[in-house]
Design a protein around this nucleic acid. Sequence first.
DNA 1: CCTGTGATGGCAGAAACTGACATCACGGAG
DNA 2: CTCCGTGATGTCAGTTTCTGCCATCACAGG
Lengths: 197, 197
Amino acid sequence: MGRWEPDARGRLVKAAMELFEERGYARTTVADIAERAGLTERTFFRHFADKREVLFSGSEDLEAVILAAVAQAPDGAAPFDVVLAAMEAAGAMIQERRAMPFVRARWAIVTEHAEVRERELIKMASLGAALTAALRARRVPEPAASLAAAAGIAAFTVGFERWVAAKRPGDLAAHVRAAFDALEAVTSRAPARAPRA
Amino acid sequence: MGRWEPDARGRLVKAAMELFEERGYARTTVADIAERAGLTERTFFRHFADKREVLFSGSEDLEAVILAAVAQAPDGAAPFDVVLAAMEAAGAMIQERRAMPFVRARWAIVTEHAEVRERELIKMASLGAALTAALRARRVPEPAASLAAAAGIAAFTVGFERWVAAKRPGDLAAHVRAAFDALEAVTSRAPARAPRA
DNA sequence: CCTGTGATGGCAGAAACTGACATCACGGAG
DNA sequence: CTCCGTGATGTCAGTTTCTGCCATCACAGG
């Protein structure tokens, strides 16, 4: 492999991010991206299923980190603690990429464009499914596995959003932990059940 | 209003569902739908933002029911119980539509087509945002409001999926309640905190 | 009778994607 | 060394989604 410029995929991602910042996501066509990367539109679609997907390059790594964290959790750990550990690991990975400007630019695009947000949500759902499967492999029964996964991802999302919104970034993992604690607090019903019992 | 056949929107929804069942979602074009409804493609896009949206007609009602339930909850109720009540109300509405075949047909399409699932997820997220706002109006602070809303919707989803998957439909609200209980159980950490303390 | 309004139709076009086929350097088999 | 399979890319035509712009035309109110 040396016939073409190497790392076509990486070049496409780079070109896309540049153009998105220059003209905005909506006003950048796939043809534009391909051209800047020195490729053709057709080749873009061989590397990415669609235009949005170029914003999610690397999400496979995230899933891998999460699954690894689950696998490494001590045997007797409670499911929710396992999920917390997995989400902390995910947070650490995002933070360690030192690509904070990239994270922010990406975040801006995702929140501004509903179509991209849709993609983000389905990626999260897919992550949740993988996490659920990993929990089930640890003998966590349903529906506890699904619920722990979904709730954990919700907590992660809240923590992440607060981290991004914060002026001084701080530690993402700390935000995530705080969200988990808050979730535990809000889902615990008072000792005396509410009226409807 | 009497110049055209009435209820263009309704006719489009009906035509769409028929065609989706006859040829499948992917092989049905918007032009097909419009033609069967006695309209043109251009008019379809005046009633629905895009092809997927025709599958979500009525989701506004769902949001209204949820918000009404939140508003009617007793003043001192715990946030999570308020959310439970709202989700039970949503479940009751879905069940009372007596459109069980429609619900199943729609469910099949949503689970089979990622693009439609994306739309479903963003609708859920939007519902979550509305629910969060309603909780905040009840003086529930952040991040408790966001977390209660997201966790509640996750529990509802699990309950709904189990209800749809069940051979004998049974009561949706009961499934939802069970999911809430299971969520509470899984998010409660043991009295002695896990290793990381 | 006249006119504004609102839902619709017609049409052209951009942009996202897809399928089928061609190209062409590299690397191994002979 | 030559030949051929392979794989990433290019080319091109075509479908589908979705938008902008303007025309139409019955109905309602003045």
